[in-house]
Design a protein around this nucleic acid. Sequence first.
DNA 1: TGTACATCAGTGAACGCGCGTTCACTGATGTAC
DNA 2: TGTACATCAGTGAACGCGCGTTCACTGATGTAC
Lengths: 235, 235
Amino acid sequence: MAKQNKRQEQRDATIEAIKAAARQQMASEGTASLSLRAIARLLDVTAPALYRYFADRDDLITDLIVDAFNAIADAMVEAEAEVARDDYAGRLLTAMLAYRRWAMEHRTDFQLIYGNPIPGYNAPGEITVEAATRAFRLVIDILGAANAAGILQPPPETFDLPASIEAHLVWLSEQDGYHQPPFVLYITVVGWARIHGMIMLEIFDNLDPVIGDSEAFYRREVTSLCKSMNLIPKS
Amino acid sequence: MAKQNKRQEQRDATIEAIKAAARQQMASEGTASLSLRAIARLLDVTAPALYRYFADRDDLITDLIVDAFNAIADAMVEAEAEVARDDYAGRLLTAMLAYRRWAMEHRTDFQLIYGNPIPGYNAPGEITVEAATRAFRLVIDILGAANAAGILQPPPETFDLPASIEAHLVWLSEQDGYHQPPFVLYITVVGWARIHGMIMLEIFDNLDPVIGDSEAFYRREVTSLCKSMNLIPKS
DNA sequence: TGTACATCAGTGAACGCGCGTTCACTGATGTAC
DNA sequence: TGTACATCAGTGAACGCGCGTTCACTGATGTAC
Protein backbone atom coordinates (compact mmCIF):
# COMPACT_ATOMS: atom_id res chain seq x y z
CA MET A 1 0.00 0.00 0.00
CA ALA A 2 2.77 2.42 0.91
CA LYS A 3 4.72 1.36 -2.11
CA GLN A 4 1.63 1.58 -4.26
CA ASN A 5 1.27 5.18 -3.17
CA LYS A 6 4.90 5.83 -3.82
CA ARG A 7 4.53 4.69 -7.40
CA GLN A 8 1.48 6.92 -7.71
CA GLU A 9 3.34 9.87 -6.24
CA GLN A 10 6.14 9.30 -8.68
CA ARG A 11 3.58 9.33 -11.46
CA ASP A 12 1.94 12.51 -10.29
CA ALA A 13 5.31 14.18 -9.98
CA THR A 14 6.17 13.20 -13.53
CA ILE A 15 2.86 14.54 -14.80
CA GLU A 16 3.57 17.84 -13.08
CA ALA A 17 7.06 17.88 -14.55
CA ILE A 18 5.64 17.34 -18.02
CA LYS A 19 3.16 20.16 -17.59
CA ALA A 20 5.85 22.43 -16.22
CA ALA A 21 8.04 21.70 -19.23
CA ALA A 22 5.06 22.33 -21.49
CA ARG A 23 4.47 25.71 -19.89
CA GLN A 24 8.12 26.56 -20.15
CA GLN A 25 8.11 25.69 -23.81
CA MET A 26 4.97 27.72 -24.48
CA ALA A 27 6.50 30.67 -22.69
CA SER A 28 9.57 30.66 -24.86
CA GLU A 29 8.15 29.55 -28.21
CA GLY A 30 4.52 30.62 -28.04
CA THR A 31 1.43 28.61 -27.28
CA ALA A 32 1.07 27.49 -30.87
CA SER A 33 4.36 25.62 -30.96
CA LEU A 34 3.64 23.37 -28.03
CA SER A 35 5.20 20.08 -29.09
CA LEU A 36 5.56 16.76 -27.37
CA ARG A 37 9.01 16.21 -28.77
CA ALA A 38 10.24 19.53 -27.45
CA ILE A 39 8.81 18.75 -24.02
CA ALA A 40 10.52 15.37 -24.05
CA ARG A 41 13.77 17.08 -24.96
CA LEU A 42 13.44 19.44 -22.00
CA LEU A 43 12.87 16.49 -19.69
CA ASP A 44 15.70 14.49 -21.19
CA VAL A 45 13.41 11.69 -22.15
CA THR A 46 12.25 10.22 -25.45
CA ALA A 47 8.99 11.47 -26.90
CA PRO A 48 7.07 8.17 -26.73
CA ALA A 49 7.62 8.12 -22.96
CA LEU A 50 5.07 10.91 -22.66
CA TYR A 51 2.38 8.58 -23.92
CA ARG A 52 2.55 6.81 -20.57
CA TYR A 53 1.00 9.95 -19.07
CA PHE A 54 -1.15 11.50 -21.75
CA ALA A 55 -3.22 9.79 -24.41
CA ASP A 56 -2.04 12.31 -26.99
CA ARG A 57 -1.12 15.93 -27.50
CA ASP A 58 -4.71 17.14 -27.26
CA ASP A 59 -5.05 15.43 -23.92
CA LEU A 60 -2.07 17.34 -22.54
CA ILE A 61 -3.38 20.63 -23.87
CA THR A 62 -6.79 20.02 -22.35
CA ASP A 63 -5.14 19.43 -18.99
CA LEU A 64 -3.13 22.62 -19.29
CA ILE A 65 -6.27 24.57 -20.10
CA VAL A 66 -8.22 23.17 -17.18
CA ASP A 67 -5.28 23.83 -14.89
CA ALA A 68 -5.05 27.42 -16.06
CA PHE A 69 -8.74 28.10 -15.50
CA ASN A 70 -8.50 26.58 -12.05
CA ALA A 71 -5.29 28.38 -11.16
CA ILE A 72 -6.61 31.81 -12.05
CA ALA A 73 -9.81 31.14 -10.12
CA ASP A 74 -7.76 29.86 -7.17
CA ALA A 75 -5.64 32.99 -7.22
CA MET A 76 -8.77 35.14 -7.02
CA VAL A 77 -10.43 33.08 -4.32
CA GLU A 78 -7.30 32.95 -2.23
CA ALA A 79 -6.69 36.70 -2.39
CA GLU A 80 -10.31 37.57 -1.84
CA ALA A 81 -10.57 35.31 1.20
CA GLU A 82 -8.22 37.62 3.11
CA VAL A 83 -10.66 40.51 2.95
CA ALA A 84 -13.38 41.11 5.52
CA ARG A 85 -16.61 39.49 4.36
CA ASP A 86 -18.65 42.67 4.56
CA ASP A 87 -16.10 44.75 2.64
CA TYR A 88 -17.66 44.00 -0.72
CA ALA A 89 -15.75 46.65 -2.60
CA GLY A 90 -12.50 45.40 -1.15
CA ARG A 91 -13.34 41.82 -2.04
CA LEU A 92 -14.22 42.69 -5.60
CA LEU A 93 -11.20 44.90 -6.12
CA THR A 94 -8.88 42.34 -4.58
CA ALA A 95 -10.26 39.56 -6.76
CA MET A 96 -9.85 41.62 -9.91
CA LEU A 97 -6.32 42.63 -9.03
CA ALA A 98 -5.45 39.00 -8.33
CA TYR A 99 -6.88 38.12 -11.72
CA ARG A 100 -4.57 40.55 -13.45
CA ARG A 101 -1.58 39.54 -11.37
CA TRP A 102 -2.05 35.91 -12.28
CA ALA A 103 -2.46 36.77 -15.95
CA MET A 104 0.74 38.78 -15.96
CA GLU A 105 2.70 36.14 -14.12
CA HIS A 106 1.38 33.42 -16.42
CA ARG A 107 1.04 35.17 -19.72
CA THR A 108 1.19 32.11 -21.87
CA ASP A 109 -1.29 30.20 -19.76
CA PHE A 110 -3.64 33.12 -20.11
CA GLN A 111 -3.12 33.13 -23.86
CA LEU A 112 -3.81 29.44 -23.85
CA ILE A 113 -7.30 29.93 -22.44
CA TYR A 114 -8.26 33.27 -23.99
CA GLY A 115 -6.07 33.66 -27.05
CA ASN A 116 -5.92 31.99 -30.43
CA PRO A 117 -6.75 28.33 -30.36
CA ILE A 118 -3.79 26.04 -30.84
CA PRO A 119 -3.66 24.76 -34.41
CA GLY A 120 -4.76 21.16 -34.68
CA TYR A 121 -6.19 21.13 -31.18
CA ASN A 122 -9.75 19.97 -30.84
CA ALA A 123 -11.31 21.09 -27.59
CA PRO A 124 -13.27 18.29 -25.94
CA GLY A 125 -16.03 20.73 -25.09
CA GLU A 126 -17.58 20.17 -21.71
CA ILE A 127 -14.48 19.25 -19.76
CA THR A 128 -13.17 22.79 -19.53
CA VAL A 129 -16.47 24.54 -18.95
CA GLU A 130 -16.75 23.96 -15.23
CA ALA A 131 -13.25 25.27 -14.52
CA ALA A 132 -13.82 28.20 -16.85
CA THR A 133 -16.89 29.24 -14.91
CA ARG A 134 -15.34 29.41 -11.47
CA ALA A 135 -13.93 32.94 -11.69
CA PHE A 136 -17.21 34.17 -13.10
CA ARG A 137 -19.12 32.56 -10.27
CA LEU A 138 -16.90 34.15 -7.63
CA VAL A 139 -17.63 37.65 -8.89
CA ILE A 140 -21.32 36.93 -9.08
CA ASP A 141 -21.24 35.67 -5.51
CA ILE A 142 -19.57 38.82 -4.24
CA LEU A 143 -21.95 41.08 -6.10
CA GLY A 144 -24.89 38.96 -5.02
CA ALA A 145 -23.81 39.27 -1.39
CA ALA A 146 -23.38 43.02 -1.71
CA ASN A 147 -26.82 43.20 -3.24
CA ALA A 148 -28.35 41.08 -0.53
CA ALA A 149 -26.78 43.44 2.00
CA GLY A 150 -28.55 46.31 0.29
CA ILE A 151 -25.33 48.09 -0.61
CA LEU A 152 -25.15 47.59 -4.34
CA GLN A 153 -26.38 50.55 -6.37
CA PRO A 154 -25.63 49.99 -10.01
CA PRO A 155 -26.41 52.70 -12.58
CA PRO A 156 -30.09 52.82 -13.52
CA GLU A 157 -29.65 51.60 -17.12
CA THR A 158 -28.51 48.28 -15.67
CA PHE A 159 -32.13 47.62 -14.80
CA ASP A 160 -33.38 48.40 -18.26
CA LEU A 161 -31.62 45.80 -20.38
CA PRO A 162 -32.42 44.91 -23.97
CA ALA A 163 -34.89 42.02 -24.05
CA SER A 164 -32.47 39.69 -25.84
CA ILE A 165 -29.89 40.16 -23.11
CA GLU A 166 -32.27 40.10 -20.17
CA ALA A 167 -33.89 36.88 -21.33
CA HIS A 168 -30.53 35.23 -21.73
CA LEU A 169 -29.29 36.31 -18.31
CA VAL A 170 -32.43 35.05 -16.63
CA TRP A 171 -31.94 31.72 -18.36
CA LEU A 172 -28.24 31.59 -17.52
CA SER A 173 -28.85 32.41 -13.85
CA GLU A 174 -31.29 29.54 -13.68
CA GLN A 175 -29.17 27.18 -15.74
CA ASP A 176 -25.96 27.62 -13.76
CA GLY A 177 -27.66 28.04 -10.41
CA TYR A 178 -26.54 31.59 -9.67
CA HIS A 179 -29.95 32.60 -8.36
CA GLN A 180 -29.29 36.26 -8.97
CA PRO A 181 -31.26 38.92 -10.80
CA PRO A 182 -30.15 39.74 -14.35
CA PHE A 183 -28.51 43.02 -13.44
CA VAL A 184 -25.99 41.21 -11.22
CA LEU A 185 -24.96 38.99 -14.10
CA TYR A 186 -24.93 41.95 -16.43
CA ILE A 187 -22.53 43.91 -14.25
CA THR A 188 -20.34 40.87 -13.99
CA VAL A 189 -20.09 40.57 -17.75
CA VAL A 190 -19.37 44.26 -18.07
CA GLY A 191 -16.58 43.97 -15.55
CA TRP A 192 -15.22 40.86 -17.18
CA ALA A 193 -15.12 42.46 -20.62
CA ARG A 194 -13.40 45.58 -19.32
CA ILE A 195 -10.78 43.66 -17.43
CA HIS A 196 -10.30 41.40 -20.37
CA GLY A 197 -9.59 44.25 -22.75
CA MET A 198 -6.86 45.71 -20.58
CA ILE A 199 -5.25 42.37 -19.92
CA MET A 200 -5.29 41.24 -23.52
CA LEU A 201 -3.69 44.49 -24.60
CA GLU A 202 -1.11 44.38 -21.84
CA ILE A 203 -0.24 40.74 -22.38
CA PHE A 204 0.76 41.42 -25.96
CA ASP A 205 2.58 44.59 -24.99
CA ASN A 206 0.11 46.91 -26.65
CA LEU A 207 -0.98 48.82 -23.57
CA ASP A 208 2.21 50.12 -22.02
CA PRO A 209 3.24 52.02 -25.17
CA VAL A 210 0.07 54.11 -25.04
CA ILE A 211 -0.68 54.44 -21.33
CA GLY A 212 2.78 54.29 -19.80
CA ASP A 213 1.72 52.57 -16.58
CA SER A 214 -0.58 49.65 -17.21
CA GLU A 215 -0.91 48.65 -13.60
CA ALA A 216 -2.02 52.09 -12.46
CA PHE A 217 -4.41 52.21 -15.38
CA TYR A 218 -5.90 48.85 -14.51
CA ARG A 219 -6.31 49.76 -10.87
CA ARG A 220 -7.99 53.00 -11.80
CA GLU A 221 -10.42 51.41 -14.22
CA VAL A 222 -11.34 48.68 -11.81
CA THR A 223 -11.81 51.12 -8.96
CA SER A 224 -14.00 53.32 -11.09
CA LEU A 225 -16.05 50.28 -12.04
CA CYS A 226 -16.60 49.49 -8.36
CA LYS A 227 -17.54 53.06 -7.60
CA SER A 228 -20.07 53.14 -10.40
CA MET A 229 -22.14 50.68 -8.42
CA ASN A 230 -21.58 52.32 -5.06
CA LEU A 231 -18.86 49.93 -3.94
CA ILE A 232 -16.26 52.31 -2.55
CA PRO A 233 -12.89 50.69 -1.84
CA LYS A 234 -11.09 51.94 1.22
CA SER A 235 -7.57 52.09 -0.17
CA MET B 1 4.82 51.62 -71.48
CA ALA B 2 1.32 50.20 -71.67
CA LYS B 3 2.72 46.71 -71.71
CA GLN B 4 5.03 47.54 -68.85
CA ASN B 5 2.00 48.53 -66.84
CA LYS B 6 0.18 45.42 -67.84
CA ARG B 7 2.97 43.28 -66.47
CA GLN B 8 2.85 45.34 -63.28
CA GLU B 9 -0.89 44.97 -63.01
CA GLN B 10 -0.56 41.25 -63.45
CA ARG B 11 1.97 41.27 -60.65
CA ASP B 12 -0.22 43.28 -58.32
CA ALA B 13 -3.13 41.01 -59.03
CA THR B 14 -1.04 37.97 -58.20
CA ILE B 15 0.10 39.55 -54.95
CA GLU B 16 -3.50 40.20 -54.01
CA ALA B 17 -4.40 36.63 -54.92
CA ILE B 18 -1.63 35.34 -52.69
CA LYS B 19 -2.79 37.47 -49.78
CA ALA B 20 -6.38 36.39 -50.34
CA ALA B 21 -5.34 32.77 -50.28
CA ALA B 22 -3.32 33.42 -47.15
CA ARG B 23 -6.35 34.94 -45.44
CA GLN B 24 -8.51 32.08 -46.55
CA GLN B 25 -6.04 29.62 -45.13
CA MET B 26 -5.77 31.48 -41.83
CA ALA B 27 -9.54 31.56 -41.57
CA SER B 28 -9.85 27.82 -41.93
CA GLU B 29 -6.73 26.62 -40.14
CA GLY B 30 -5.95 29.41 -37.70
CA THR B 31 -3.43 32.20 -37.93
CA ALA B 32 -0.66 30.04 -36.56
CA SER B 33 -0.73 27.56 -39.41
CA LEU B 34 -0.19 30.06 -42.16
CA SER B 35 2.05 28.20 -44.58
CA LEU B 36 3.49 29.10 -47.94
CA ARG B 37 3.02 25.61 -49.27
CA ALA B 38 -0.66 25.59 -48.35
CA ILE B 39 -1.13 28.94 -50.04
CA ALA B 40 0.59 27.66 -53.15
CA ARG B 41 -1.70 24.66 -53.13
CA LEU B 42 -4.76 26.90 -52.99
CA LEU B 43 -3.46 28.88 -55.95
CA ASP B 44 -2.53 25.77 -57.91
CA VAL B 45 1.06 26.80 -58.12
CA THR B 46 4.31 25.42 -56.74
CA ALA B 47 5.60 26.85 -53.49
CA PRO B 48 8.82 28.38 -54.85
CA ALA B 49 6.73 30.52 -57.21
CA LEU B 50 5.70 32.63 -54.21
CA TYR B 51 9.27 33.75 -53.76
CA ARG B 52 8.83 35.88 -56.87
CA TYR B 53 6.47 38.04 -54.80
CA PHE B 54 7.63 37.83 -51.22
CA ALA B 55 11.15 37.56 -49.88
CA ASP B 56 10.04 34.96 -47.36
CA ARG B 57 7.20 33.94 -45.09
CA ASP B 58 7.82 36.75 -42.62
CA ASP B 59 7.56 39.26 -45.43
CA LEU B 60 4.12 37.98 -46.37
CA ILE B 61 2.95 38.07 -42.77
CA THR B 62 4.18 41.61 -42.31
CA ASP B 63 2.21 42.65 -45.36
CA LEU B 64 -0.91 40.96 -44.06
CA ILE B 65 -0.52 42.73 -40.73
CA VAL B 66 -0.06 46.15 -42.28
CA ASP B 67 -3.04 45.52 -44.56
CA ALA B 68 -5.20 44.55 -41.60
CA PHE B 69 -4.31 47.66 -39.61
CA ASN B 70 -5.01 49.81 -42.63
CA ALA B 71 -8.24 48.05 -43.50
CA ILE B 72 -9.74 48.41 -40.04
CA ALA B 73 -8.76 52.08 -39.95
CA ASP B 74 -10.21 52.56 -43.43
CA ALA B 75 -13.46 50.95 -42.34
CA MET B 76 -13.72 53.39 -39.44
CA VAL B 77 -12.79 56.44 -41.47
CA GLU B 78 -15.17 55.55 -44.26
CA ALA B 79 -18.13 54.98 -41.94
CA GLU B 80 -17.41 58.02 -39.84
CA ALA B 81 -17.12 60.28 -42.89
CA GLU B 82 -20.85 59.82 -43.53
CA VAL B 83 -21.79 61.50 -40.28
CA ALA B 84 -22.29 65.25 -39.92
CA ARG B 85 -19.04 66.86 -38.76
CA ASP B 86 -20.55 68.48 -35.70
CA ASP B 87 -22.28 65.30 -34.53
CA TYR B 88 -19.34 64.19 -32.44
CA ALA B 89 -21.25 61.50 -30.58
CA GLY B 90 -22.51 60.09 -33.85
CA ARG B 91 -19.04 60.11 -35.36
CA LEU B 92 -17.51 58.36 -32.39
CA LEU B 93 -20.26 55.78 -32.13
CA THR B 94 -20.18 55.11 -35.85
CA ALA B 95 -16.43 54.66 -35.86
CA MET B 96 -16.57 52.24 -32.96
CA LEU B 97 -19.36 50.22 -34.52
CA ALA B 98 -17.42 50.05 -37.78
CA TYR B 99 -14.44 48.82 -35.82
CA ARG B 100 -16.42 45.94 -34.40
CA ARG B 101 -18.06 45.13 -37.69
CA TRP B 102 -14.72 44.89 -39.43
CA ALA B 103 -13.33 42.71 -36.66
CA MET B 104 -16.27 40.33 -36.86
CA GLU B 105 -16.12 40.13 -40.62
CA HIS B 106 -12.38 39.57 -40.56
CA ARG B 107 -11.87 37.58 -37.42
CA THR B 108 -8.60 36.03 -38.39
CA ASP B 109 -7.11 39.29 -39.60
CA PHE B 110 -8.04 40.77 -36.26
CA GLN B 111 -6.41 37.87 -34.48
CA LEU B 112 -3.38 38.40 -36.62
CA ILE B 113 -2.87 41.91 -35.32
CA TYR B 114 -4.12 41.58 -31.75
CA GLY B 115 -3.86 37.90 -30.91
CA ASN B 116 -1.03 35.50 -30.26
CA PRO B 117 2.03 36.17 -32.36
CA ILE B 118 2.61 33.66 -35.13
CA PRO B 119 5.28 31.16 -34.10
CA GLY B 120 8.57 31.79 -35.83
CA TYR B 121 7.50 35.21 -37.06
CA ASN B 122 9.81 38.06 -36.24
CA ALA B 123 8.07 41.41 -36.49
CA PRO B 124 10.19 43.98 -38.30
CA GLY B 125 9.21 46.57 -35.73
CA GLU B 126 8.66 50.01 -37.18
CA ILE B 127 6.95 49.04 -40.41
CA THR B 128 3.64 48.22 -38.80
CA VAL B 129 3.55 51.04 -36.27
CA GLU B 130 2.25 53.75 -38.55
CA ALA B 131 -0.66 51.66 -39.80
CA ALA B 132 -1.40 50.49 -36.26
CA THR B 133 -1.74 54.07 -35.07
CA ARG B 134 -4.29 55.25 -37.62
CA ALA B 135 -7.42 54.04 -35.81
CA PHE B 136 -6.14 55.52 -32.58
CA ARG B 137 -5.49 58.83 -34.24
CA LEU B 138 -8.98 58.98 -35.72
CA VAL B 139 -10.61 58.66 -32.31
CA ILE B 140 -8.31 61.27 -30.84
CA ASP B 141 -9.19 63.61 -33.67
CA ILE B 142 -12.92 63.23 -33.07
CA LEU B 143 -12.57 63.73 -29.33
CA GLY B 144 -10.21 66.63 -29.89
CA ALA B 145 -12.74 68.29 -32.18
CA ALA B 146 -15.53 67.74 -29.69
CA ASN B 147 -13.35 69.23 -27.02
CA ALA B 148 -12.43 72.22 -29.16
CA ALA B 149 -16.16 72.76 -29.75
CA GLY B 150 -16.60 72.90 -25.97
CA ILE B 151 -18.93 69.91 -25.90
CA LEU B 152 -16.79 67.27 -24.30
CA GLN B 153 -17.40 66.79 -20.58
CA PRO B 154 -15.52 63.76 -19.38
CA PRO B 155 -15.88 62.62 -15.76
CA PRO B 156 -13.83 64.69 -13.30
CA GLU B 157 -11.34 61.95 -12.41
CA THR B 158 -10.13 62.10 -16.01
CA PHE B 159 -8.42 65.36 -15.12
CA ASP B 160 -6.71 63.94 -12.08
CA LEU B 161 -4.53 61.23 -13.57
CA PRO B 162 -1.70 59.39 -11.81
CA ALA B 163 1.57 61.16 -12.50
CA SER B 164 3.08 58.18 -14.30
CA ILE B 165 0.20 58.11 -16.76
CA GLU B 166 -0.14 61.85 -17.21
CA ALA B 167 3.55 62.27 -17.94
CA HIS B 168 3.44 59.53 -20.52
CA LEU B 169 0.37 60.91 -22.26
CA VAL B 170 1.90 64.37 -22.46
CA TRP B 171 4.98 62.85 -24.01
CA LEU B 172 2.98 60.68 -26.41
CA SER B 173 0.83 63.60 -27.54
CA GLU B 174 3.97 65.53 -28.36
CA GLN B 175 5.77 62.56 -29.88
CA ASP B 176 3.00 61.54 -32.27
CA GLY B 177 1.80 65.06 -32.94
CA TYR B 178 -1.70 64.73 -31.52
CA HIS B 179 -1.57 68.11 -29.84
CA GLN B 180 -4.25 67.21 -27.37
CA PRO B 181 -4.42 67.44 -23.60
CA PRO B 182 -3.74 64.22 -21.67
CA PHE B 183 -7.36 63.61 -20.78
CA VAL B 184 -8.28 63.26 -24.45
CA LEU B 185 -5.67 60.56 -24.90
CA TYR B 186 -6.71 58.96 -21.66
CA ILE B 187 -10.34 58.66 -22.72
CA THR B 188 -9.21 57.21 -26.01
CA VAL B 189 -7.22 54.49 -24.29
CA VAL B 190 -10.13 53.74 -21.97
CA GLY B 191 -12.42 53.38 -24.94
CA TRP B 192 -9.95 51.29 -26.83
CA ALA B 193 -9.46 48.89 -23.94
CA ARG B 194 -13.20 48.49 -23.40
CA ILE B 195 -13.91 47.83 -27.04
CA HIS B 196 -10.99 45.49 -27.20
CA GLY B 197 -12.23 43.36 -24.34
CA MET B 198 -15.62 42.81 -25.88
CA ILE B 199 -14.23 42.08 -29.31
CA MET B 200 -11.58 39.68 -28.10
CA LEU B 201 -14.15 37.76 -26.12
CA GLU B 202 -16.63 37.72 -28.97
CA ILE B 203 -14.07 36.73 -31.57
CA PHE B 204 -13.24 33.57 -29.67
CA ASP B 205 -16.91 32.87 -28.96
CA ASN B 206 -16.65 33.57 -25.25
CA LEU B 207 -19.11 36.45 -25.09
CA ASP B 208 -22.29 35.14 -26.65
CA PRO B 209 -22.59 32.26 -24.17
CA VAL B 210 -22.75 34.68 -21.25
CA ILE B 211 -24.51 37.73 -22.67
CA GLY B 212 -26.73 36.21 -25.32
CA ASP B 213 -26.59 39.17 -27.71
CA SER B 214 -23.06 40.44 -28.19
CA GLU B 215 -23.98 43.12 -30.67
CA ALA B 216 -26.58 44.70 -28.41
CA PHE B 217 -24.12 44.50 -25.54
CA TYR B 218 -21.41 46.20 -27.55
CA ARG B 219 -23.71 48.95 -28.72
CA ARG B 220 -24.87 49.55 -25.17
CA GLU B 221 -21.40 49.73 -23.71
CA VAL B 222 -20.15 52.03 -26.41
CA THR B 223 -23.16 54.29 -26.08
CA SER B 224 -22.72 54.46 -22.35
CA LEU B 225 -19.08 55.35 -22.84
CA CYS B 226 -20.09 58.24 -25.11
CA LYS B 227 -22.67 59.43 -22.64
CA SER B 228 -20.18 59.42 -19.79
CA MET B 229 -18.41 62.30 -21.51
CA ASN B 230 -21.54 64.15 -22.51
CA LEU B 231 -21.58 62.89 -26.09
CA ILE B 232 -25.21 61.90 -26.53
CA PRO B 233 -25.88 59.89 -29.68
CA LYS B 234 -29.17 60.62 -31.41
CA SER B 235 -30.21 57.08 -32.26
C1' DT C 1 12.32 -13.63 4.20
C1' DG C 2 12.93 -15.37 -0.70
C1' DT C 3 11.43 -16.23 -5.07
C1' DA C 4 8.35 -16.18 -9.34
C1' DC C 5 5.61 -13.27 -11.60
C1' DA C 6 3.08 -9.11 -13.13
C1' DT C 7 3.14 -4.35 -13.79
C1' DC C 8 5.07 -0.38 -15.17
C1' DA C 9 8.48 3.42 -17.21
C1' DG C 10 11.05 4.34 -20.67
C1' DT C 11 13.78 3.19 -25.18
C1' DG C 12 14.97 3.26 -30.05
C1' DA C 13 13.67 2.57 -34.56
C1' DA C 14 10.42 3.57 -37.77
C1' DC C 15 6.13 5.51 -40.27
C1' DG C 16 4.42 9.21 -43.14
C1' DC C 17 3.79 13.89 -43.08
C1' DG C 18 4.34 19.03 -44.02
C1' DC C 19 7.30 22.73 -43.64
C1' DG C 20 10.61 26.93 -45.63
C1' DT C 21 13.92 27.60 -48.73
C1' DT C 22 17.66 26.91 -52.65
C1' DC C 23 18.78 25.97 -57.20
C1' DA C 24 19.22 25.26 -62.03
C1' DC C 25 15.92 25.12 -65.45
C1' DT C 26 12.20 26.18 -69.17
C1' DG C 27 8.93 28.87 -71.64
C1' DA C 28 6.49 32.86 -72.21
C1' DT C 29 6.24 37.84 -72.43
C1' DG C 30 7.96 42.26 -73.38
C1' DT C 31 11.87 45.53 -75.40
C1' DA C 32 15.19 47.59 -78.59
C1' DC C 33 16.71 48.16 -82.93
C1' DT D 1 6.95 45.26 -89.00
C1' DG D 2 10.41 41.58 -87.86
C1' DT D 3 13.93 39.76 -85.37
C1' DA D 4 17.45 39.14 -81.48
C1' DC D 5 17.71 39.60 -76.91
C1' DA D 6 16.58 40.45 -72.01
C1' DT D 7 13.41 39.98 -68.45
C1' DC D 8 10.28 37.62 -65.94
C1' DA D 9 6.95 33.75 -63.95
C1' DG D 10 6.81 29.52 -62.73
C1' DT D 11 8.65 24.47 -62.41
C1' DG D 12 10.47 20.30 -60.30
C1' DA D 13 13.81 18.22 -57.65
C1' DA D 14 16.16 18.45 -53.60
C1' DC D 15 17.95 19.92 -48.79
C1' DG D 16 17.40 19.26 -43.89
C1' DC D 17 14.21 19.76 -40.44
C1' DG D 18 10.63 18.76 -36.73
C1' DC D 19 6.38 16.82 -35.90
C1' DG D 20 2.73 13.05 -33.62
C1' DT D 21 2.26 8.52 -33.13
C1' DT D 22 3.01 3.11 -33.31
C1' DC D 23 5.46 -0.76 -32.04
C1' DA D 24 8.18 -4.37 -30.11
C1' DC D 25 11.50 -4.22 -26.68
C1' DT D 26 14.24 -3.99 -22.08
C1' DG D 27 14.94 -3.23 -17.31
C1' DA D 28 13.40 -1.81 -13.09
C1' DT D 29 9.95 -1.77 -9.51
C1' DG D 30 6.35 -3.70 -6.87
C1' DT D 31 3.17 -7.92 -5.52
C1' DA D 32 1.72 -12.53 -4.03
C1' DC D 33 2.75 -16.61 -2.06
